[in-house]
Amino acid sequence: MSARANILGKLRNSLAGTTPRPDEFDERLVTAPWRYAPEDRIDRLRSLMEAVHTEVHQCRSDNWPELVAELLNKRNLTNLLCAPSKEHGRALQAYFEATEQKVELLAYDQPVEAWKEELFWNVEASLTGTLGGIAATGTLVLWPDRNEPRLMSLVPPVHIALLKASEIHDNLYDMMVAQDWAAGLPTNVLLVSGPSKTADIEQVLAYGAHGPRELIVLVLEDA
């Protein structure tokens, strides 16, 4: 007998003569306490994210690249990983070229094996889009894909994320249902609620454990 058959057999034997319990999920419990007026969503997300060391900026579709340049220059960063295949990547590239920024724009356009060393040690910052945000917990939702792969938001020490205000949902449940996640998930879905941190020594919070030391969120208020 295989382990599988043994395990399933034992479990079935222990349940003999019983019926499965009914589904008692009550969506009110995970939505009602977490509803916000549309105009309060940004504030809620912002205050929660700031409480865990995230820098949040409210800006517009036409001025965010300028802000990115400013943020990078302030930190003396020399390169930024972004996706030229995406609309926001192109916008950034155009702005950087037009204003002759010194920051080098890098693209994640080859399998990680081809440039792991460089990605892990030389990339200083990255910029990605998001699928949306969650006001209840101060969370960004990322669905990495070919253009913005999984390690892009994890390995560089600074991660800048673009969040459209119109895509901030009240709570995770609402977002899942609205976008019908259950119908099919990508390889990896990420909920990100701040920069990497640990409290494993004496419960003292330290940021930049293994992932980004800094998370910067740009909320596009008109998008």
Partner: peptide, 8 residues
């Protein structure tokens, strides 16, 4: 409850 029913 049935003796082997899952308890809540």
């Amino acid at each position: 409850a049935a003796p082997n029913a899952t308890r809540v």
